[in-house]
């Protein structure tokens, strides 16, 4: 089937089978390998991308179901101001080691920052439940998100 959608602001087309997941369409057909695949059953969160502005699991979402959608991956967040602040905070707080969970983690973190500006540590941790990291023990990740939340509050 021909799939037409917008990826990172650019209209694209791809020939995919109906069974192809959005993750595989991005990685194998569109060569956007920033989105990593961790479990292919929706638990680990590594493959989280934005579909029409909201985080979603690209491993359990059919690519054909995204026809006409606006998809944004880590590659499309280079200029995003919240993602930029998060990248800075992730580096400062050592919120990544092997980097495999990081793209999905940033997509989720960005959603937390935008959707829950008043979130404290327990809420941030709860919201991170769907993004597994095997390296950091989450210490740096939680600190980085709290740091960006605080910065945005200060900035008004």
């Amino acid at each position: 089937m021909t799939l037409s959608l917008s990826v990172n602001g650019t209209p694209v087309e791809a020939q995919v089978e109906p069974r192809t997941s959005l993750a595989d369409a991005l990685r194998e057909h569109l060569m956007l390998t920033g989105t990593n695949v961790g479990c292919e059953h929706g638990v680990c969160g590594a493959c989280t991308v934005l579909i029409d502005g909201a985080p979603a699991r690209s491993c359990i979402t059919l690519a054909v179901a995204c026809d006409g959608a606006d998809v944004r991956t880590i590659e499309g967040l280079d200029e995003d101001p919240v993602a930029t602040a998060l990248r800075e905070a992730f580096a400062a707080e050592h919120a990544l080691q092997c980097g495999y969970c990081t793209p999905g983690m940033l997509v989720t973190a960005r959603d937390i920052v935008l959707r829950l500006p008043d979130a404290g540590e327990p809420r941030v941790r709860e919201e991170l439940a769907g993004n597994l990291c095997r390296c950091t023990g989450y210490v740096g990740i939680v600190r980085a998100i709290l740091r960006v939340l605080a910065e945005r509050k200060t900035a008004g």
């Binding site: 989280t48 985080p55 979603a56 699991r57 769907g130």
Partner: peptide, 9 residues
Amino acid sequence: IAYRAVRNR
């Protein structure tokens, strides 16, 4: 229910 990314869809 599950996680936010799942709840969105």
